[in-house]
Amino acid sequence: MGDDVDEFNALLTGVGGEGVLLTSVVISRAANIEGHEVRGTQLHGLAQRGGSIPTHVRFGRHVRSPVIRRGDADLLMALEPLESARYAYFASKGKTNIVIDDYQVMPAYAKSVGQKYPSMDRIAGMLKPFAKSMTIIPASNITSKELGNPVFGNMMCVGAAISMGFLPLKKGSIEKAIRQTVPRGMKENLKAFRMGLDYRG
């Protein structure tokens, strides 16, 4: 068990409060359930407050370092559109599948000085040279409608990534990891995850 993957690199990004770290815990635990050797980062700095959060999750036989090399992400999952393009450094055309939740969070400071939020098309244009594929999902909006809270968008994105073959983990391992990680709100998180599995753009 666990020796079927040499190296898989997932970069999960978003804004503080969207559950980026929760997502990384679920994915890393699911990888552990399947017997993979896991590495990654969970940085907490000043950037935490309303700030941009990049977390690395890596698993496989050859993985040693906690951080992904430039252009080496297999999956870039962004729970907020700006936070996809901000970390294009880790993505590349030959390798990276990009999944974006289109739920926008305008940076407080940028707003106060009159900056505008770029259109989704512009963000997609900036990311194009770094993407093998790009999938934009209104995940938080859907879970907001269906489950009453945009915060479950993260699990829906994970489900979608698995159904599209962008995350080499089994459905059952993710479900087990969700049960372990979020005893409170477990039902909604599992539902959101399954909605992601069924999602067809």
């Binding site: 950037a47 407050r49 393009a85 294009a88 940076p107 400071y109 940028a110 900056q115």
Partner: peptide
């Protein structure tokens, strides 16, 4: 690897920054 194109594409990405702010 040669990352010159990667780096020049990175330079084209301009985004509103998220500076540290007080929590709501």
């Amino acid at each position: 690897k040669d990352f010159r194109k990667h780096d020049s594409d990175m330079k084209k990405i301009k985004l509103p920054a998220r500076k540290p702010v007080f929590c709501p």
